[in-house]
Design a protein around this nucleic acid. Structure first.
Lengths: 199, 199
DNA sequence: CTCTAACTAGAACATCGCCTCTAGATCAAG
DNA sequence: CTTGATCTAGAGGCGATGTTCTAGTTAGAG
């Protein structure tokens, strides 16, 4: 068995996260290696390309948020309350973990489906499966009359996650604290947006 | 007086707009010159740098939206209705002018205030003055009890323009048509969000 | 101890895109 | 016609950055 690794993948991703928190998408491999203590050679030994490194970081940050969201679902019995709570939790989580949140802004899912590195393609494609299933469950309970709408989940996603993310994104990208009063705005706006689902 | 110009500034900006509509922020000067029919030398004769070209395009697209918004204000007597109409109009305008809308996503105002080319600094700084004044007027009428809140305009901006823009941005960036059902979502969400202003 | 797989190291290479530079073209004014 | 300011033209410099390459290091297995 060869030499043991000096850095774990997560250590390198953590370094990348901090660089991205400052420099955004334009983070360079040299910056990541400087921040981690590894050399560019070592970074490329682990990740086939800069793209793969950043996509892996993006995936990790979104999967971590999703874990929180699944916990939130479990804490609520009423599906309507759960949907609103998902949005508010997204804002809270992003406020508490600004660097993680910044990493989430690196890419858009639809684009990566086409352009992600081969090795990560499947992980990208199925990234939202769990959350979509959850939204489908909640939507079917909350809007039984609209259960046959083929775009139901898509619309619910927009009204809950999309709406919240759109409001907090400017703060995340600007590395500015997300104001606490936004939580209330999000809660009321999501509640109202959801009323469009079944007219 | 020397040779007359073969291209107007607006022609070059139009070409840049079409390139940006396809390639986003990564649009290159070579692509713009190819799209316009001018050479890179000509482009640099008009614009001191790629940054200045793109910031000018960004400014133009936002100022054009603002013109629409001022017209919308004039069409409404009730300040509450006007605020909602501003948000809906932003969505409609972006749906009808996707390339203009894409240009609006090139930069964020707060960042440009610090990094814009010298020549454009003032124009960037005062870009939102008119809209903020309008929002201030409408907010003062609609929320007389909150008129002394120093952050009133900022919050109204977030609840109206910020909320709308956050919802439509993904479609703009993906070059996907903005769904018509979003207009209703926006109208209801903005109405509800504004209720947080005076509790 | 030796062997070897796995990793570190960082210099070198290749590419890409911004920007500059020099030469030449054009056209209104005098 | 002559002049000269303004613009066109596009090849090339130059810096930055992703990626590769070759040599060297490490530590567990036998």
């Amino acid at each position: 068995m060869g030499r043991p690794a000096k850095f774990t993948d997560d250590q390198l991703l953590d370094a990348a996260r901090e660089v991205v928190a400052v420099h955004g998408v334009t983070a360079t491999v040299a910056q990541v290696s400087a921040a981690s203590g590894a050399t560019t050679g070592s970074v490329y030994h682990r990740f086939r390309s800069r793209e793969e490194l950043l996509v892996r970081l993006w995936l990790r940050s979104i999967e971590r948020l999703h874990e929180r969201l699944f916990e939130v679902e479990a804490e609520h019995d009423d599906p309507g309350e759960a949907l609103v709570a998902l949005a508010v939790e997204t804002a809270r989580y992003s406020r508490e973990h600004p660097a993680e949140a910044r990493a989430m802004t690196l890419y858009r899912h639809e684009r990566l489906v086409h352009t992600a590195p081969q090795v990560l393609h499947d992980r990208v494609v199925h990234l939202n499966d769990g959350v979509f299933a959850m939204l489908g469950r909640l939507a079917a309970q909350r809007f039984p009359t609209a259960a046959d709408d083929p775009h139901l989940v898509r619309r619910v996603f927009t009204c809950v996650i999309g709406l919240c993310y759109g409001l907090i994104r400017p703060y995340i990208v600007a590395a500015t604290p997300i104001p606490v009063w936004l939580d209330d705005v999000i809660a009321r706006a999501v509640t109202a947006a959801l009323t469009t689902i079944d007219q």
